[in-house]
Measured scan of single mutants.
Amino acid sequence: QVALSRTQVCGILREELFQGDAFHQSDTHIFIIMGASGDLAKKKIYPTIWWLFRDGLLPENTFIVGYARSRLTVADIRKQSEPFFKATPEEKLKLEDFFARNSYVAGQYDDAASYQRLNSHMNALHLGSQANRLFYLALPPTVYEAVTKNIHESCMSQIGWNRIIVEKPFGRDLQSSDRLSNHISSLFREDQIYRIDHYLGKEMVQNLMVLRFANRIFGPIWNRDNIACVILTFKEPFGTEGRGGYFDEFGIIRDVMQNHLLQMLCLVAMEKPASTNSDDVRDEKVKVLKCISEVQANNVVLGQYVGNPDGEGEATKGYLDDPTVPRGSTTATFAAVVLYVENERWDGVPFILRCGKALNERKAEVRLQFHDVAGDIFHQQCKRNELVIRVQPNEAVYTKMMTKKPGMFFNPEESELDLTYGNRYKNVKLPDAYERLILDVFCGSQMHFVRSDELREAWRIFTPLLHQIELEKPKPIPYIYGSRGPTEADELMKRVGFQYEGTYKWVNPHKL
């Protein structure tokens, strides 16, 4: 086992960053958080920038500027975001240094004079007029057009580079997404736009490419001749908990499936790229999406959770019991969808996408189930092999396979070949997804960000279904809070070829 401390991990990262040409360590950078008073800024962006600063992973002359409508001070920003920093008493001095680099400007999102004030403020910072500028839009999409237009007109660096990070949702359907994309691309070049999907920053999602293309053993079996089906799962054990009003506007397909799960599907299904260059990788992902037809209604199961009468606390409440959810809402909190990649490698292999709230566990994984062994000599005792990439929690890679049961006879039983990170790298604290992705933006690497043509294809696949749901308002199937979801989803999976045995229990190697 390799035991690495946080300091050692960050030392390795620093070495990698400083050796590259793309990370300008000594240049002045300004990180501007648009929507600095909001939840995302408070819980994710400010803490992430602090962790990067604490670990010495930001360029040395980096300033952080918050911008929002609320009249706040840096002290206010500190008060609301610091509880999420997880700072230790030993880091007190470092924390003071961090907040000394912070400033805040209040202004409207659609007022040109406010942006001119913001620009004057940035120019007044040390070497601010020639600094590289990175704008993070932690804002609702309704203000994107006004904000990007004003940034472009008043706040661009004339000497350094300018980059803009856009948070999902990128529209509600193909038409609104196209409108937003066309607007942003009329102001910024594609190499300046970073559409963030934080799932692409997760260690195991990034590991998929290495697993596939750096190991000879997987190449020959990664196709329709050997793989019976692919299941991509995202499960949350909690409901909307008072935030249903926002969720109800989008629903589970827009929230998770059309982005996170579809991105994971691309990494499983794509061909080997010409290189690890950002556009070479994204070219292959677009090719996969172009091979997927629009979702067919007979390959869809929609569910909505109801309270568990035997549960406790939140578990007793259904989705419609959330006071922020519109009365009688038919918005799905669970969806199972089957897609097919219609190309030579994957023809006929079902890709089953499942996601839901208020389920029995927290889990995100990719599961490849292989065909049955031909010419069975073990009297149907063999179960199908599976390769599982567990994204969260407890990152893991393992192969479910058959071995001989101890004893006199040739009785096979299920076991696993474990390729888990935790076994080799004991207690290594890896940077989280937002840390990686923000560092990628500083480096100018777009590999783990969504390109406009990729986004367009993703919406093309799901828009007809979303429009049909909005028009017909089908009643989702009720499922109990804390269950596996509607049984109809299991029946759909069985119908397209997935075999669920229920006889195997994964042993978490992190707890051995």
Rank of each mutant, 00 (worst) to 15 (best):
Y398F: 05
V325H: 05
Q499V: 11
P350E: 02
M270P: 02
K363N: 07
R451V: 00
G407V: 06
L417D: 04
D310I: 09
D440H: 07
K505C: 14
A315M: 14
S275Y: 03
N343K: 05
Q381V: 11
R282Y: 01
T333N: 01
P309Q: 13
I477S: 13
V496R: 15
E365R: 02
I352K: 00
N308M: 10
P486R: 02
H448G: 07
G348W: 04
T316V: 12
G311P: 08
A489V: 09
M408E: 04
V286W: 07
L430S: 11
V507L: 14
G375L: 11
E361V: 06
P406R: 07
Y434E: 01
D418C: 06
Q258D: 01
D322T: 05
F334R: 04
E386H: 02
Y340G: 08
V286D: 07
T331Q: 14
V295R: 11
G497C: 07
R436L: 05
C382A: 15
R456I: 05
E491H: 13
C355P: 03
E284K: 09
D255P: 02
P431W: 05
G422Y: 14
V337A: 12
V288D: 04
T333R: 03
G318A: 14
D440G: 06
V366G: 00
P273I: 03
M270T: 06
L492R: 01
I477P: 11
A315L: 12
V349C: 05
A458M: 05
Q304F: 04
G318S: 14
K363I: 06
T316C: 13
E386R: 03
V300S: 09
V496N: 14
K505E: 13
Y481I: 08
V286Y: 09
Q499A: 14
L419V: 08
K404H: 00
R282M: 00
Q381H: 10
V268F: 07
Q446E: 00
D418Y: 01
L455G: 06
T487P: 14
G313L: 10
T324S: 13
G356E: 02
K405D: 06
S293V: 06
G311F: 09
R345Q: 10
V349L: 02
P476K: 02
N360C: 05
P323F: 05
Q392P: 01
P464K: 09
D321M: 10
S445D: 13
C382I: 13
V388T: 08
D347V: 07
S483A: 11
S415T: 14
K494W: 11
N298W: 07
F378H: 05
S275P: 05
E488T: 08
L339C: 15
R354N: 01
K429W: 04
E491Q: 10
T403M: 14
C382R: 10
V397P: 04
G313F: 11
M493P: 06
F442G: 02
F410T: 13
R282D: 01
L417E: 07
G328C: 15
A336R: 01
L267S: 07
N385H: 03
N308T: 09
H448F: 03
S445T: 11
P309E: 15
G348M: 04
H379N: 12
N385F: 04
R282F: 01
G444A: 10
F410G: 13
R367C: 01
M402G: 04
Y504I: 04
E501K: 09
Q296V: 13
K429I: 13
I480R: 14
V256T: 09
K400D: 03
I253H: 04
N259H: 01
V300K: 09
E457T: 08
T330K: 13
G311T: 10
F370P: 02
C266M: 06
V288R: 03
K400P: 02
N360V: 00
G422W: 08
E472R: 15
A335Y: 03
E314P: 10
Y305N: 01
C443V: 14
S415A: 12
L261I: 07
E294T: 11
G485K: 01
V268Q: 03
E416S: 09
N427F: 09
E470G: 11
E472H: 13
N298I: 11
Q468N: 15
A335E: 00
A336K: 06
V337Q: 14
V391K: 04
R460V: 06
R254Q: 00
N360R: 05
F409N: 13
T403L: 11
N259E: 03
E312L: 13
Q392H: 07
V337C: 14
C443Q: 12
V337M: 09
R484A: 04
Q263W: 01
F351M: 06
T503E: 11
M402Q: 13
D418W: 04
L359Y: 01
E457C: 12
T276S: 10
A374T: 11
L387Y: 06
N308P: 07
R254K: 06
W459F: 03
E454Q: 05
E470R: 08
K400Q: 04
F334E: 01
R390G: 05
F410C: 15
A269C: 11
E395D: 15
A269S: 11
F378L: 10
P476F: 01
K494A: 13
E457W: 09
S483I: 00
E501G: 13
L262Y: 04
Y500G: 02
P464D: 10
E416Q: 04
V337F: 07
S415F: 04
Y340R: 11
P323Y: 11
E361P: 01
D418A: 07
H371V: 08
S329W: 00
L353N: 05
R436H: 06
Y434T: 04
G313V: 08
E294N: 12
W506E: 05
V300N: 08
N308Y: 09
Q468V: 14
G303S: 00
Y319K: 00
V325N: 05
D376M: 08
N308D: 15
Y319T: 02
L289N: 00
F378Q: 05
L430D: 05
N298Y: 10
T420V: 07
D321W: 06
V428W: 07
Q258M: 00
W506T: 04
L359P: 03
D440W: 06
I292K: 03
C266I: 05
H379F: 10
P464G: 12
K285P: 01
I377E: 07
K287V: 06
R424T: 07
N259S: 04
R367W: 00
Y398L: 01
E271W: 00
F410E: 14
L417N: 01
E435A: 08
L353A: 05
T324V: 07
Q369K: 05
R384P: 09
T316R: 15
R495K: 14
L262Q: 08
L265W: 00
P326L: 06
L320C: 08
I480S: 12
K287D: 09
V268H: 00
D322L: 04
